[in-house]
Amino acid sequence: MMLDFGKLDAYIAGVALKRISQVECEERYSNQHELNGVKEMRKLFGTTKKIYPTRFMRLEDDEEKSGESYGDMTWYDAREAHPTRTEYRFYYQKNVAIERAGPEDVLGIILKKDGHVLFVTAPKGSQAEAELFELFGSALGASFSVVDFEEKGTTLTFAKRMILEALGIESVAQDAKDYLGFIEKKLGSLSFPNTKTFSGLAREAFGDTRGLSADERLIYWWNTEETMFKQLENVEIESRLKTGFHDVDDFLTFSQFVRQRRSSRAGSALENHLSEIFETEGVMHSRGKKTEGNKKPDFIFPSIEKYHEAGFPMERLAMLGVKTTCKDRWRQVLAEADKIPLKHLFTLQPKISSNQLDEMSGANVRLVIPSELQESYCCDIKRKMLSLEDFLLYVKHL
């Protein structure tokens, strides 16, 4: 059963998007830290002065160049004292999102349902921009265009959920089971096992997969494990909050641990479920074995032994790198498995720019993306990638 994550308006009330002008991002032209609103923004932000807690985010394809900071933004009428005129503006503090932005970059002011705001910028033509367009649309100009999601009723697809996660907004399945009893029964406690065990529990909890394609199984297992993980994590966090923290450093250390575990678990879970699919499909493979030096591709087909066997035909070898999101990190697969010129890369990246896809194609990298995620791409781009079912046929043919 596919979990129902509802509509986008369960998490976001609306968004205002525009292209950044030179005067808004370069201090030599202006340091007022203000953005002019448009009439349509009043429905989202009201007509009275209000201060919004804000998370400022700079999104880059090179994740090391991304950044975030926290502060406030003030929505107010600069002509409040005038008897007939109004001029609504946002005043914001100095922040990483605008400091790293350039003219024509995309800017989004996202009003969350909890009343907090995300102030997001991304480079023009980047994957990060493409993701924002997938979530919010791409009709941009010098003035804000406004989308009210309570009116639009946008369904929260898997692709949109992945983008929300990148923005720090966690989606929750409306019809998710309570898995805590199942976990405690199987493990004897409500504590995290190793990632392989947890992935196996998720597959067992999901149940019968007869009649499902490999792409469907992968997505269903991923959704189930993610839901189970969040439920178990909530138990741990609530327990720690009751215990309390010694000081700020103790709190920050725990927060960093939670974030790092989420990231590492996601990658391991994806590999665990892919390995299970290869096993059940009778596809010979080796996982995490050395090819040259300390290089360890995620998967080698048919085996690492055949890879190192003298005289084994190179054209019968294949490799698969696995990354939940690739962005600029896709280049890492280029240095893996020297004998195999064509690199395959499996990812759950919900949107990839045309420029990035062209660069991948030029580097002889072919993407493997679940069929459900491919729905967010146009036909011309989809022809350049494989579904998981396609990839299984490819390695079986070898």
Rank of each mutant, 00 (worst) to 15 (best):
G288N: 09
R316M: 12
E281P: 10
S239D: 15
Y377D: 00
F133E: 15
E225L: 01
T86G: 15
I304S: 01
D175P: 00
M73T: 15
Q349W: 08
F198R: 12
G102Q: 08
N36D: 04
A166H: 13
N234F: 05
Y179P: 04
S66H: 13
T195A: 14
Y52W: 07
E24G: 01
A142D: 14
D62K: 06
F56G: 00
E27R: 14
K382Q: 05
D298R: 07
N355R: 13
E372K: 04
E233D: 10
R19K: 15
L317Y: 02
V235H: 13
L342N: 10
E372P: 03
T154W: 01
Q260T: 09
F312S: 12
D358W: 07
K242R: 02
E34T: 12
M41A: 05
A205G: 02
R383G: 00
S376Y: 08
E134I: 00
F278V: 08
R217G: 06
P302A: 07
F133K: 09
I340G: 03
S286C: 01
C379M: 12
S126K: 08
N294E: 13
K49W: 02
G46W: 07
G71F: 08
M1N: 03
Y377F: 15
A122C: 12
R265K: 01
G288W: 10
L386Y: 04
D358A: 15
Q93A: 04
F56P: 00
I163P: 06
Q374P: 13
G141I: 02
P302N: 02
G188H: 07
R55C: 09
T347F: 04
D208R: 10
K43T: 11
V172I: 15
R329V: 02
C379G: 14
A202S: 04
D250Y: 07
S268T: 09
T84F: 14
F251E: 08
